[in-house]
Design a protein around this nucleic acid. Structure first.
Lengths: 346, 346
DNA sequence: ATGAAAGCGCTAACAG
DNA sequence: CTGTTAGCGCTTTCAT
């Protein structure tokens, strides 16, 4: 089966090999390679030369076992296909790049069972910290994280009780705020378009908050449309057509994310619907994409990058034993951006 | 600094703890927990009960050191902000989910030095395999991968020499094919719009292939426009306006990716330009987004998911010592999809 | 079917 | 500044 091209070395090199090649004790070699403790410039040079010429790559497995330190941070997210999570990752990386910590990603596909398994896997590597999306987990997952003995930051959401720390926005509040903005602008015949995802708790919370405000105002949600899978932009179009065909009297469409909102916007413009006068539109997330649309979709920012940076900062601070620990509960306050798809407030 | 809620346990549990709690030797506990070797149903049950009630999480660091096996696959990509790479990840995950292997992602920001460092970090964990984007690496990185003693799959590109295995498309060919399709359709006054990224070798190869065909046909590229950063959709708009303002006589715009192409399309439609009759447009990647645009942008698929699955299959096969090893050089053949933004061939 | 001993490659802690 | 001695928690190997 396929010889790998092996110059001459096969078994991975060890400290011992570097030690022998340089005539310096293993311990001192170890010190040099980690920049630890005082080592004379002369031996340091000898060791470096030997290590480089041999092509030595340290074995972190052994190092971690011996030192009981693992500079990994587990990051557990539901999906990569939703740009939201890569953006959170970027925030995390930005902070961790300034530390010895490295993020390791696990994906759960929005499945609690899979999440539990991924958390178990992660913890079995004894990471320095964990960043997990959401506040809803299986009881077993929660127990594992509680006993992990490392900082655990639950991100994206703050509507619920955190195990250790949390960073995010209130999705209930996001839904409420959007509803209030819509009502304030005189829209009354409202439809909702979202994803068919019972396990996306944040989308659910936004929807519930949204509905609650409508209820309080005595306004009924006139139509709902759901999708799953496929091109979100296209689905946004299709759902918008469907919901407008079904209810010709709607004057506002609230989308559970900007991508389907963008599709809806494109549909409305092509259909000659007057946005925002006859029809208002709003999405959620505040993605960059919005900038390039014919009209800027109204939206509420989900603060993805800030969530990533704040979460990583909590982990970094605890890991370094910072004396000034960041707050263990960071509630970001997203702002409604009206863009061009809602009228001015009355 | 912030007590973590500790039930009573603090130091992580070890096999020994499970052994004592169950009255079974460490060795047998280990066997049970790994489903290895014959163990009586009775002791197995005792051990499982003890492990579960204690909340034991095995220490993979120690396990890996002892067994010299690490079920991780390093995946090294330039960026997460470009949806292309998350899509590759999904292909990889789909395959690895059926094996004991787990992907670990590293991001290089298109910087060769950072790539070298990430490869070094990855290899220091002694993974079972490596998947790396691109064929261009520093000499040191190449040497490390050559000597890693594990399968290394270079992905996305096949225009060059692979260290071990490679899976991808020919970007030179992609550029050429697109140019030929454009010429075949009678367009002659062509402009190019791309990213300002000297280190994106694949984009460069596409551009060079594209230019080569134009050259052979005696056709000059009339205008070029480049961007970096920001909303690709918006940049696509802006660049399109700029290039058309500068050269009023263009009849085709070739975009280095679909996102800026989509922005360009939206601009053209709003500007009342007749697409595809007076102006043809084409992008690259074949992203889902295209489905939802007012007109489907012509594009060439970059086969992202297939690349991920094929790469993961190579690693999985070598790791399992499959008798029928997949080919070490997989060249995918993307097809030009004319969509609605190019004329019919003459 | 189960156990005992040895050691994976490295680093902490101490000694010189 | 450098070296020695013990393990880290697990699995391998060999007994029983």
């Amino acid at each position: 089966m396929s010889e790998r091209q092996t110059p001459e070395i096969r078994h991975n090199l060890t400290l011992r090999d570097v030690s022998e090649a340089s005539g310096v004790s293993e311990m001192t070699v170890s010190r040099v390679l980690r920049n630890r403790g005082e080592v004379s410039e002369k031996t340091r040079a000898k060791v470096m030369a030997a290590a480089k010429s041999l092509g030595y790559v340290p074995n972190k497995i052994a190092g971690a076992l011996a030192s009981n330190r693992v500079n990994l941070v587990g990051v557990i997210i539901p999906s990569l296909s939703n740009m939201v999570f890569p953006e959170v990752m970027m925030g995390i990386s930005r902070v961790l790049d300034g530390t010895p910590l490295q993020p390791v990603v696990g994906v759960t596909d929005y499945l609690p069972e899979k999440e539990e398994q991924v958390i178990f896997e992660m913890l079995s590597w004894r990471p320095s910290g964990l960043i997990v999306a959401g506040l809803e987990h299986t009881e077993a997952a929660r127990a594992m994280m509680r006993n992990a003995g490392v900082p655990v930051v639950e991100i994206m959401d703050v509507d619920g009780e955190a195990i250790d720390a949390c960073v995010g926005i209130s999705h209930d509040r996001a839904g409420r705020d959007t509803a209030m903005e819509i009502l304030k602008r005189g829209y009354r015949r409202i439809g909702f378009l979202g994803t068919k995802m019972p396990l996306d708790h944040r989308a659910r919370k936004r929807f519930e908050g949204f509905k609650a405000v409508l209820d309080e105002a005595g306004i009924e949600l006139l139509a709902e449309e759901y999708y799953s899978g496929g091109s979100a932009l296209k689905k946004g179009r299709e759902m918008t057509q469907a919901i407008l065909d079904a209810r010709k009297d709607l004057d506002f469409l609230y989308y559970s994310n900007d991508m389907i909102g963008a599709g809806g916007l494109l549909y409305c413009l092509e259909a000659g619907i007057n946005v925002p006068d006859d029809m208002g539109l709003a999405g959620f997330n505040g993605v960059e994409l919005i900038e390039g649309l014919p009209k800027r979709l109204a939206t509420l920012d989900s603060c993805r990058t800030e969530i990533g940076t704040a979460a990583a900062e909590i982990i970094a601070a605890e890991t370094e034993g910072a004396d000034q620990a960041p707050s263990k509960r960071v509630v970001l306050e997203p702002v409604f951006t009206p863009g061009d798809t809602v009228r001015a407030p009355l």
